[in-house]
Design a protein around this nucleic acid. Structure first.
Lengths: 200, 200
DNA sequence: ACCTGAACACCGTTCAAGT
DNA sequence: ACCTGAACACCGTTCAAGT
């Protein structure tokens, strides 16, 4: 028996009105422009032209959406850091270039930076592998400066400093005035000195 | 003419059923035990034995309550750091003792630590003066190690590192294994080396 | 399969009415 | 003056009903 495909009982499948990519992109825009508190399922739905419940066809819940935003952001950051690292063969110069690039990313996408490096309780943040890939150039240069023995400790010292500095800068926690560009510079040099000196 | 104080039109003022101190204490407990998302006006009210609307007699809104919790926490931290600093005259040993005390505080009160050093957008966090008082011992030792010229930059490098390390440790961002105690130790030594070396 | 309105539980907050 | 119930606006999320 043939399938019933008479023209009046059959109808074209309506094209989807949105997509996961659209939703994540809208979320990233909203996060940066309005802050996390106003990154609302309703607001995202408005922006992609659909009602809020429809988002749950593409995303399990708001937390997963936040994680997807963190994931997309960390990939962008990783690509940028990789490009910067390739352009600078000298280890000390590369440490500086990577730190500066990280700071530029933090200034350009402060909310995304915060989401990636300080995921709010309840969310998981970006996938661990993605964060590892993005951090690889920094870990590598730390190893070059401090030696393979101390690579991990050295990398953690650098990332902790950078993360802390940028988090405090974005959060307005440096309240004693002074030149933050110079303070960042001082920090880079101090760490380069410290990692280079053996310490044994 | 005498005031009307006939016994049947006059009544004892009921004693207050709670206080600002009670509310802040309940908030601190809840924050640490249940996390910021469940630090709810309703939950605080339940704990102090009143209805949620009554809290607004003592506190402007939830954000102010969060700020009061941050303020109380930073004062505790400041007192602890001051005591540690007084007990250790050697600058390098004092840097280590302060860093360790800060880490102990972060481990003992992780949610409060996070609230103080990464106040969520919308809140103001603790009063700037209170944070300055709490940070004073660290700024002072940084100045002793790096010299008065570089005191502020050096202090920012140390606090950025400590803040970043502990934020990442509490947030579970160190995912490559290894000994975190040793990594923290390495960081302290690296910073002490870096601040001591002139860099000019 | 995707989309929607309606509904639910749960927030923070306000306010008139009680004592 | 403090406390309360009731109400409001606004969340995230579920689900039956539509196409």
């Amino acid at each position: 028996m043939m399938a019933n495909v008479n023209s009046y009982t059959w109808s074209m499948p309506t094209p989807d009105r949105t997509s996961l990519a659209d939703i994540v992109a809208a979320g990233r825009d909203l996060l940066e422009s309005d802050g996390p508190a106003r990154l609302t399922m309703q607001a995202v739905a408005d922006r992609v032209g659909v009602r809020a419940p429809s988002l749950y066809k593409r995303v399990r819940n708001r937390e997963e959406l936040m994680d997807l935003i963190a994931e997309a952001s960390v990939r962008d950051l990783g690509a940028r850091l990789r490009a910067v690292a390739e352009a600078e063969p000298d280890a000390r110069g590369r440490l500086r270039a990577l730190a500066v690039a990280l700071r530029e990313f933090a200034h350009a996408h402060p909310a995304a930076f915060h989401l990636v490096f300080t995921p709010p309780p309840g969310t998981s943040g970006s996938r661990p592998e993605s964060l590892a890939v993005a951090s690889a150039p920094l870990i590598e240069v730390a190893g070059e400066l401090a030696g393979p023995e101390r690579a991990l400790d050295a990398a953690r010292t650098v990332t902790a400093w950078a993360n802390g500095f940028l988090g405090m800068e974005l959060g307005g926690s440096f309240r004693l005035g002074g030149d933050l560009d110079a303070a960042f510079d001082y920090g880079i040099d101090a760490l380069a000195r410290a990692l280079t000196a053996s310490g044994d």
